[in-house]
Simulated assay, not measured.
Amino acid sequence: MAALTATALGACGGPDPSPVPPPPSATTATSTPAAPPPTARACRTDALLVPACGVLWGASAGGFSAVPRDRALKAWEARTGRTATVFHTYHRGDDLFPSPSEIAMTRDRARPRVLLVNWRVDDGVTWAQVARGAVDDRIDRWARHVRRTYRQRFFLVVRHEPEADVDQGAGSGMTARDFALMYRHVIERVRADGVHNAITVLAYMGSEKWLAQPWWQDLYPGDAVVDWIGLDSYVSAEPGRYHYGGFADLLDRAPVTGGGGFYDWATTRHPNKPVMVAEWGVYHRVGRRVDKAPEFASVLPELRRRPAIKAIVYFDTDDDAFGDRDISVDSSASSLAAFRRLATSPLFDVTLNDP
């Protein structure tokens, strides 16, 4: 049994992990109170990477720059003062992953990490085509790569943030139901191919517009193929701007037609599933100087109020895909200082346990 402790920078790790057996059924995942752990050693992850206490701390750094993600993350960890226990990366189509650099990051004895990989497996085809087997060769080739090169547990997101690409038109191949069938087919194929170390995450956008759509519930592919429920959500630090608010606003966005927010939906409809904030960040317009400290200070109180949240993963970039949002934690000295204070919390002292 390999137990790797993910604490503040400079902590010691354990030995390299050994091969893992298939995890239990996804339906066994549980949500237990996320009280601060008495010690890092006592707060361990289970077979589905759910911490018994505390919250996994993670990041994707480098954003849309050309800097390799492993180098960007190491620099981000140095700035923020804590190892990102969850290392978030992105792949698409025929990519074979984990890559050598990703594998090296998760086998760093002094800085133990677990991968969170977004895979756009549907690259070049529709969701309906994937569900009918159009990319089975792609899936099988990737599965052979994983079986040959990587035995550690890792998080796998299949086609994150599907909402904006839903087309409910007849024959589009991109309906919400098509997405659910695609997701289920991919995971069932992966498992049939002998990949049992992939812990699945379904990552929603969770915005007001999409939550109100009559098809939104149809995106869910079933508890048997979903281990964690994920949310990608951001807030603005500029008063009066769209989505201005703190960490609670990020979690509680509700349908424009009324009703409960995303966190309430996840914990009510799927009470046995841990929740991952798979992408989060605080932004302001590029070129502005705005203090993000209040937003960063709002994180810990909300995590203590919401025990189903078992992981938060920051997306750091100083220039987003649209070229108008700075989501970096160090856009000002006061913002970075507040984020570093957040990073020191013992709530994030979690031991990665890979039996």
Results as ranks from 00 to 15, higher is better:
residue 298 S to M: 00
residue 289 R to W: 11
residue 264 D to Q: 07
residue 287 G to T: 15
residue 247 F to C: 00
residue 311 A to G: 12
residue 294 P to K: 10
residue 232 D to M: 04
residue 275 V to E: 04
residue 263 Y to I: 05
residue 295 E to R: 09
residue 235 V to P: 08
residue 238 E to N: 08
residue 231 L to M: 12
residue 253 R to P: 13
residue 303 L to Y: 01
residue 240 G to A: 07
residue 306 R to C: 03
residue 255 P to M: 10
residue 251 L to H: 15
residue 297 A to H: 02
residue 244 Y to W: 13
residue 285 R to A: 11
residue 296 F to G: 02
residue 314 Y to S: 01
residue 265 W to D: 07
residue 293 A to L: 00
residue 287 G to P: 13
residue 236 S to F: 10
residue 234 Y to S: 11
residue 230 G to T: 08
residue 241 R to W: 03
residue 247 F to N: 00
residue 246 G to H: 01
residue 258 G to C: 02
residue 269 R to A: 05
residue 287 G to R: 08
residue 237 A to K: 05
residue 246 G to W: 00
residue 307 P to G: 06
residue 248 A to H: 12
residue 313 V to C: 13
residue 301 P to I: 07
residue 259 G to P: 11
residue 240 G to V: 15
residue 300 L to P: 10
residue 274 P to T: 04
residue 255 P to A: 09
residue 240 G to N: 12
residue 311 A to V: 13
residue 237 A to R: 15
residue 273 K to T: 05
residue 307 P to D: 14
residue 291 D to I: 12
residue 246 G to P: 05
residue 239 P to M: 03
residue 247 F to H: 00
residue 269 R to C: 06
residue 282 V to Q: 10
residue 279 E to I: 10
residue 310 K to R: 09
residue 280 W to C: 00
residue 285 R to Q: 09
residue 278 A to F: 13
residue 238 E to Q: 08
residue 307 P to L: 12
residue 308 A to I: 02
residue 240 G to F: 13
residue 285 R to W: 13
residue 295 E to S: 12
residue 233 S to M: 09
residue 265 W to T: 03
residue 302 E to L: 02
residue 277 V to N: 05
residue 282 V to N: 15
residue 262 F to H: 07
residue 241 R to A: 14
residue 299 V to H: 00
residue 292 K to H: 11
residue 279 E to H: 00
residue 263 Y to R: 05
residue 296 F to C: 02
residue 311 A to Y: 04
residue 299 V to G: 00
residue 262 F to I: 09
residue 249 D to R: 14
residue 315 F to W: 13
residue 295 E to D: 06
residue 292 K to V: 10
residue 256 V to M: 11
residue 253 R to C: 07
residue 244 Y to K: 12
residue 306 R to G: 03
residue 245 G to M: 11
residue 255 P to L: 12
residue 276 M to I: 06
residue 249 D to C: 12
residue 286 V to N: 06
residue 239 P to N: 08
residue 245 G to L: 04
residue 232 D to E: 01
residue 277 V to Q: 08
residue 306 R to L: 05
residue 252 D to N: 04
residue 258 G to V: 14
residue 270 H to I: 06
residue 242 Y to K: 15
residue 248 A to L: 10
residue 238 E to G: 06
residue 279 E to F: 02
residue 251 L to A: 15
residue 312 I to L: 12
residue 285 R to P: 13
residue 242 Y to P: 05
residue 293 A to T: 01
residue 254 A to Q: 03
residue 273 K to M: 06
residue 277 V to F: 04
residue 274 P to F: 12
residue 250 L to Y: 01
residue 302 E to P: 00
residue 277 V to R: 03
residue 287 G to V: 10
residue 295 E to F: 15
residue 254 A to M: 03
residue 273 K to L: 14
residue 233 S to G: 13
residue 290 V to F: 14
residue 274 P to H: 09
residue 244 Y to P: 13
residue 306 R to W: 13
residue 310 K to E: 06
residue 236 S to K: 09
residue 294 P to W: 02
residue 239 P to V: 07
residue 251 L to V: 09
residue 277 V to E: 01
residue 288 R to V: 03
residue 236 S to V: 14
residue 290 V to Y: 09
residue 265 W to Q: 07
residue 259 G to S: 04
residue 267 T to Y: 12
residue 287 G to F: 11
residue 237 A to D: 04
residue 246 G to I: 04
residue 310 K to V: 07
residue 267 T to L: 07
residue 237 A to H: 05
residue 289 R to G: 03
residue 275 V to T: 06
residue 235 V to E: 02
residue 312 I to P: 08
residue 276 M to W: 01
